[in-house]
């Protein structure tokens, strides 16, 4: 019996403090009762993109006196199922999901529907049929692709030959290249010599770029569909000694990509705004709860990140100081 007592002490020591006794207090002033509770389950909290998204939802939610509870499925839809069940039991007012699996999430969204809780998706859409999602908030990848084409035209001064490092297995990348084609085909001076698969990966894109530089000695630039492939291309260009002539536009504006722009390896990268996705999602919830019509899809526009932005970027300045 003594032993059982000791184990219960261990458990209390473990759970007592973080649990609290009222289960409240995140994103809301002490003592105040929140107007609404929002349950969030993101794909993972190990990727800065989703951390920014979740933080933005918390801070934006606090402005409206919402309590925002953030959990993470960590790529496992079974975890998300349990988290959603617990949200339903807690009678949250709305659920926001970045589904770990666009189809398998369907039954859980169905359960939330049956409990009368509105569901919103952020960044990753739900593809399951027969369930209701109030609104999907995500990056406008099509528009981002158009912006990338504008950046390429600007980079080449309106004339030149450009190669594309592609990754057509991913839905969002297909949208990016579609937008890119749409705008670049209207620029008379620019010729796209072709699309090569780079797997969204630094190593693969490096090899692809080496081969392309061999076969097109008069090439002027690249568009790479994300930062790792852009940086892989940059290494190949450097190795070929063509850094002066061949320039690169990439996508995502991850810290590595922004650094590449600052160091001149990349001409520009296209910025996605996870924080805006988070804020717009909360905004959609607020409007929904005021009885307004909410668009089924809300797209966040991308912008171009050039050297001037990199020079003024405080996160990179701190980096340089080290």
């Amino acid at each position: 019996m003594k032993a059982i007592l000791s184990i219960s002490l261990i458990i209390f020591a473990g759970c007592g403090r973080p649990a609290g006794s009222d289960g409240q207090g995140k994103g809301v002033e002490d003592g105040a009762k929140p107007d609404a509770t929002i349950g969030v389950s993101v794909l993972t909290l190990t990727n800065p993109f989703f951390c920014e998204l979740a933080d933005a939802m918390k801070s934006e939610g606090a402005k409206h006196n919402f309590e925002v509870i953030v959990t993470s499925g960590e790529y496992n839809v079974a975890n998300q199922k349990n988290q959603i069940n617990d949200f339903i039991v807690k009678q949250v007012d709305a659920i926001v999901l970045c589904p770990c699996d666009s189809r398998a999430i369907g039954t859980s969204i169905g359960a939330a529907n049956a409990a009368g809780i509105p569901v919103f998706t952020a960044d990753i859409a739900c593809l399951a049929k027969g369930v209701k999602v109030v609104s999907h908030v995500a990056t406008d990848n099509l528009g981002g692709g158009r912006k990338a084409a504008e950046a390429v035209i600007e980079m080449l001064g309106g004339t030149g030959k450009v190669a594309v490092i592609d990754f057509p297995e991913v839905e969002s990348v297909i949208l990016r290249t579609t937008g890119f084609k749409e705008v670049i085909s209207k620029a008379p001076g620019i010729e796209v010599v072709g699309y090569w698969p780079g797997g969204g990966d630094r190593g693969k894109s490096f090899k692809a770029a080496e081969d392309i530089l061999q076969s097109y000695s008069d090439l002027d630039g690249f568009f790479a569909i994300n930062d790792p492939s852009g940086l892989g291309v940059a290494t190949a260009v450097e190795k070929a000694g063509k850094s002066d002539r061949v320039k690169i536009v990439s996508f995502d504006a991850q810290p590595d990509g922004r650094k590449g722009v600052k160091e001149g390896k990349l001409y520009a990268t296209i910025v996605q705004y996870p924080d805006k996705i988070g804020r717009k999602t909360i905004d959609a919830i607020v409007r929904y709860m005021a009885g307004e019509e909410v668009e089924p899809e809300i797209l966040i526009p991308c912008t171009i990140y050039r050297k001037a932005h990199a020079d003024a970027d405080p996160t990179l300045a701190a980096d340089k100081g080290q």
């Binding site: 184990i7 473990g14 759970c15 973080p18 649990a19 609290g20 289960g23 409240q24 959990t71 960590e74």
Partner: peptide
């Protein structure tokens, strides 16, 4: 434990730590 921690809003990372400690504690007992 998993359900209780979700209901009391314990964060994902803290949950892992607690679950690990509880498993250890139970076996130790």
């Amino acid at each position: 434990i998993q359900n209780g921690m979700n209901l009391t809003n314990v964060e994902s990372y803290t949950q892992k730590v607690i679950l690990g400690l509880v498993i250890l504690g139970a076996v130790l007992l």
